[in-house]
Design a binder for these strands. Sequence first.
DNA 1: AATGAATGAGGGTTCATTCAT
DNA 2: AATGAATGAACCCTCATTCAT
Lengths: 188, 188, 188, 188
Amino acid sequence: MVERILEAGARVLAEHGYDGASTSRIATAAGISPGSLYQYFPHKDAIVLAVLERYSDQLVAGITARMTGQFEQPAPVIVRATLAALLDGLDVEQPFLRAAVVHGPQLDDGRALRIFEDRIGELVLAYLTTRRDELRPGLSLPTAAWMLVRTVEHLTVRYLLDRPPVQRDHFLQELSQLTLNYLRPTST
Amino acid sequence: MVERILEAGARVLAEHGYDGASTSRIATAAGISPGSLYQYFPHKDAIVLAVLERYSDQLVAGITARMTGQFEQPAPVIVRATLAALLDGLDVEQPFLRAAVVHGPQLDDGRALRIFEDRIGELVLAYLTTRRDELRPGLSLPTAAWMLVRTVEHLTVRYLLDRPPVQRDHFLQELSQLTLNYLRPTST
Amino acid sequence: MVERILEAGARVLAEHGYDGASTSRIATAAGISPGSLYQYFPHKDAIVLAVLERYSDQLVAGITARMTGQFEQPAPVIVRATLAALLDGLDVEQPFLRAAVVHGPQLDDGRALRIFEDRIGELVLAYLTTRRDELRPGLSLPTAAWMLVRTVEHLTVRYLLDRPPVQRDHFLQELSQLTLNYLRPTST
Amino acid sequence: MVERILEAGARVLAEHGYDGASTSRIATAAGISPGSLYQYFPHKDAIVLAVLERYSDQLVAGITARMTGQFEQPAPVIVRATLAALLDGLDVEQPFLRAAVVHGPQLDDGRALRIFEDRIGELVLAYLTTRRDELRPGLSLPTAAWMLVRTVEHLTVRYLLDRPPVQRDHFLQELSQLTLNYLRPTST
DNA sequence: AATGAATGAGGGTTCATTCAT
DNA sequence: AATGAATGAACCCTCATTCAT
């Protein structure tokens, strides 16, 4: 039932966006009555939050799967693969992505987004740590992770939302480059 | 009169954020009646949009001023100066910045944000063009500009909104590094 | 307009009682839209409270008028006249009286009722003070006023609400007796 | 089972008052499910009514016990004892007393309150009848009982609910006086 | 041009009651 | 008999927008 509500919530979010996601619309989409929502969630935003968290969890799981055990691969390979996984994972209906990006930070004090970024950040940090000696000397790993996670996330979202006239491969290429160059020791 | 409304709108946005910016609050702040707003703007969001556009214009002007005539300076210098200008320009009241970032993209199909980014993008593109031969070969300048503008904008906003435990100078340093390294030719 | 709302509120209260006094019913009765209520009152209970306070004010004014300048009349005369005034003043539609008695004490922490009783209490206290030497020795005037105000108020309300098989005159007679005897010196 | 529900209802009423006494809260307190309530009671208010009736029964029993066989005692003694019994009997949790006083009259057309007052009234009437020759001549005993029962009940309730700055003994003294004086023959 | 009172659709939420299991 | 999830009508309130003055 919680499942059914979340699924309906996701569908409504994907179709109507956050502002169109009224409780009655979600209830109708779930084939239940408005009151039933409150048997499982304390208020509307808790539903939206749960939908976003579930999506976030899937995304994190996907990224994690793609990176795990690949740390010894050449950097360009694993970075590119990871970015591709993220791009694929974020490639959902635009209103849904927009709701996540716009309203996620407002729900429960940004809980969902914070958790997402923290978990991806830990993953990145772990990776950077194993590669520390190949990185630019003096680089603060936590700072680097903070920068990269937000950069990559935002550019990917923007790419999907704004659909700039750049090929997917080219975009991934540039994103990889941005990432790798940032970490790379500065020649000279 | 339009001026008065915009000024009031900015004040209300800075103090109460988007959700607290009701038409009556803006009207009160402007010392006029709610109905009068509609003599000058078709609806509430047009006011917010205009406020954001005015702010955006100032920001662009500031950045432009800082870059203009500085193209021949060493890259690290001009980049750093530009980033600092952006960081300063965006360092406004948090509710205002949040409103701009969260609701800007929703207003008139993202008009204000698009214009802002386009103009900064042109500036960056112009600069990159003058420096083309120092850049990574094969780099698509428009793509590079697209990437950099969004990256720098987003990281700066996040830095101001989330206040991560990173010193301002360190942050600017890393942001410069990210920018410069991205453009720099890859030493084999 | 406030007047119109109060009048409508009183009518709705008189016809449907407290529980039937929904905001939409009051608005309809006043010939306005629900939203307009909130231009003049912060919430529904403020309307009900204001209705009750207005009624209370009239009642107090009526009682005051009947007692003022009559202090030198024989006690049985003034007491009887006052009680009659109260009985008449409280003889409104039953649902209204019931709403006042049942919900008055719950609104704004009993404000309306407290004020009503305090004002009648002061009146009674003033009267008792002028008659002190005819009263039972050792009688605490404030306590006596407290007892009498509540007794008389309650019995009158109950008489009107329950319609016991007692003639109006007889009831007033007994109420007078209760009052006078309570105050009278106890003949050894 | 009915017993269990009533006990739970009383507890909930005492702790949360009428408005906080939702069916689900009562069910939880009784350790059963909401639906089961309807196996034993037709609707929520029937539960509350039954709770109040049970309480009323205890109260009546207590008063009766205190008066029975005491009729030959001096009037001041038995009156005072009876009033004290009432004051003690009504000295329950405020939310419970409030619920009884406020909502009792609304339940089943005031059934519980009517029965309570009728029974106390009969007791008083019986007592008055045995003392008829000491009472004010011409006094209608039923009317006197009606007046006294309501007066004493209300003043006691108000004393407990409003906690006026009057000592308990003083209050009982005045209440006795009010009662006795009302009945006493008027010295010329 | 300016007013600001009036609008009214729509929102989220509650809870006594029902009914399939 | 007992469950407890599901119901859904009804509630109070908000605020962008309108329009008579």
